[in-house]
Computed example of a mutant assay.
Amino acid sequence: MFAAIGIAALTSLAAVTAAHAGCMPLGSAGGLISKNGLIPGTVAVNKAQAKGGGKVIKIVLCQNGNSFVYQATVLGKQGDVKNVTINAKTGQ
């Protein structure tokens, strides 16, 4: 039973890591944000909170070639968790 729980935990961790491949925390993204004319992290947090209907508990900046998005995890008012994507150039 404990082995099954351990395997499930590792599988969940691998899924989270894969979901954030090519991503960096906002604290490390300042140069990339200014160099590429992206919306500031604080603006992205506000937009993610509005879009997700709750409080951002994690946000990262992800790059895929010349495309940038903020990936946010939002904790809703009812305790629900939502993943929200914000275009880092347009704020949409």
Rank of each mutant, 00 (worst) to 15 (best):
P40R: 13
G52A: 04
M1W: 07
A48L: 11
S34A: 10
V74C: 05
G27V: 11
V16E: 10
A88N: 08
I7V: 11
F68T: 04
K77D: 12
A72Y: 01
L61F: 03
G53K: 01
A21N: 06
P25M: 13
M1S: 12
V74K: 03
Q92A: 12
A19W: 01
I39G: 06
A21W: 01
T85P: 00
A14M: 02
P25C: 09
V60I: 04
V69L: 13
N64I: 04
A18I: 04
V74F: 08
P25S: 15
Q49L: 03
I57D: 09
N64M: 03
A18S: 08
G27E: 14
N36R: 11
K35T: 05
V45D: 03
I86Y: 04
M24D: 11
V69P: 00
S28C: 08
A50C: 00
K47P: 02
I39L: 09
L75P: 01
S28N: 15
Q71A: 10
N36T: 05
G65S: 06
I59E: 01
G41H: 06
G30D: 14
G6I: 01
K35R: 13
L26T: 12
F68M: 08
M24T: 14
V43L: 13
N36Y: 08
G31L: 13
N36L: 09
L61T: 06
A19Y: 06
A88S: 03
L10P: 00
F68Q: 10
T42G: 11
K89C: 02
A8E: 09
A88H: 02
Q63S: 14
I7R: 09
N83C: 04
G54M: 03
Q49N: 09
